[in-house]
Amino acid sequence: MAVFKKALTDTDVKRRFSFPDGCLPALPPFRGCHAIELQVKDETGILWNFACTIRSGMTPKLVIVSGWIQFARSKELQIGDVVLFYREDDRVTGAHYKIEVKKGGRYSYWGTLQD
């Protein structure tokens, strides 16, 4: 199931990825911690390890603080590229996460998300 799609900003491409509001329930529980390790598989089958944290402030923000820049560089991400994030639940092994990048107006074999 697709959790979200997001057009990348300058900060997303160069520094860190900020999740759209409302994504927290789709991620593994933080269980009182401020950070979690999130494993996400890309469309080529590569498993990426992202460290996610909740930034405090007036409006808490969920961000990927490590692992993202390596991903962005390997995919040659640009401002305006679209990232699609999926969660698939398995009764035996739990939740699995996938990430897809839309460049040049094309989606990968994982399917499309209606605009």
Rank of each mutant, 00 (worst) to 15 (best):
M1Y: 12
V3W: 14
V3N: 11
V3P: 08
F4A: 08
F4L: 14
K6H: 13
A7S: 07
A7N: 02
A7T: 03
A7C: 10
L8A: 01
T9K: 12
T9S: 13
T9N: 07
D10K: 01
T11N: 02
D12G: 01
V13L: 06
V13E: 11
K14V: 02
R15E: 11
F17M: 02
F17H: 11
S18I: 12
D21G: 02
C23P: 13
L24K: 01
A26I: 03
L27E: 02
P29A: 10
R31P: 05
R31Q: 04
R31C: 02
R31M: 11
G32S: 06
C33K: 04
H34Q: 13
H34F: 02
A35H: 01
A35N: 14
I36A: 10
L38H: 04
L38Y: 08
Q39M: 01
Q39N: 08
E43H: 13
E43F: 07
T44Y: 12
G45N: 05
I46K: 04
I46Q: 03
L47S: 11
L47I: 12
W48C: 01
W48R: 04
W48H: 06
F50T: 06
F50E: 13
C52R: 01
C52Y: 03
T53N: 01
R55D: 07
S56I: 05
G57A: 06
M58A: 06
M58T: 10
M58Q: 09
P60H: 06
K61F: 05
K61V: 11
G67P: 06
Q70P: 12
F71A: 11
F71E: 14
F71Y: 01
F71L: 06
K75Y: 15
K75Q: 15
E76F: 09
Q78G: 10
Q78L: 05
Q78F: 15
I79V: 15
I79N: 12
V82T: 13
V83D: 05
V83F: 02
L84D: 00
L84R: 04
L84M: 00
F85Q: 03
F85A: 03
R87S: 03
R87N: 02
E88Y: 03
E88H: 11
E88L: 10
D90S: 00
R91L: 07
R91M: 14
R91Y: 09
G94L: 13
G94D: 15
A95P: 04
I99W: 11
I99F: 08
E100I: 02
V101G: 09
V101D: 03
K102I: 03
K103V: 00
R106N: 12
S108W: 03
S108A: 10
S108E: 14
Y109T: 10
Y109C: 09
Y109W: 07
W110G: 00
L113F: 07
D115W: 10
